[in-house]
């Protein structure tokens, strides 16, 4: 198993860097070209969500990404340090986040110009074929993975 770790401060400008690093390592790990856009978007969504949560709760704390190849899978874990009650905060005046996606009705469910973090997680769930979300009082961890070449980093090193 080979692992790359990246930490960055909670600034929106760094999300693009995280996307580029994740996509580059996914390619190197042997993720199919057709899936690289999904990796880029899913990692971007996870990092955007983390940045927004940190800016509310703990702007000085860094966000961590781990990228590794394991048993023919490319796995990305994004970990933040913000209490994962931001979904409830964002929708405190609503019935809840727009979990059910239903065309026109969706627009009326949105609390503001942003689709908020719950929507980002829904997008990630649609993009990665294996997603786990671990909320806790210390932060949220999103683990997602895609199929990769069995030999991973070693094959292209």
């Amino acid at each position: 198993m080979a692992t790359v770790e990246l930490t960055f401060s909670a600034l929106p400008a760094h999300v693009r860097t995280a996307r580029l690093v994740a996509t580059a390592i996914a390619r190197r790990t042997g993720v199919a070209e057709a899936l690289l856009d999904e990796v880029r978007l899913a990692v971007g969504e996870a990092c955007s969500r983390a940045v927004e949560a940190h800016r509310v709760h703990c702007p000085g704390e860094p966000i961590r990404i781990e990228l590794c190849d394991e048993s023919g899978r490319f796995e990305v874990t994004v970990t933040d340090s913000a209490p994962s009650d931001d979904l409830e905060q964002a929708y405190k005046d609503e019935d809840g986040p727009p979990v059910a996606v239903n065309g026109t009705e969706l627009a009326s469910l949105l609390p503001a110009d942003t689709l908020m973090s719950g929507f980002g997680i829904a997008v990630i769930a649609a993009l990665a074929d294996d997603v786990e979300v671990f909320p806790s009082a210390k932060g949220l961890r999103i683990r997602m993975s895609w199929p990769a070449a069995a030999t991973g980093f070693a094959a292209t090193g």
Binding site: R19, E45, A107, T114, L115, G120, V123
Partner: peptide, 13 residues
């Protein structure tokens, strides 16, 4: 080249 849910939110807004 790239659009995420933040961008979608802006378009919906």
């Amino acid at each position: 080249d790239f659009l995420d849910s933040t961008g979608l939110g802006v378009l919906v807004g």
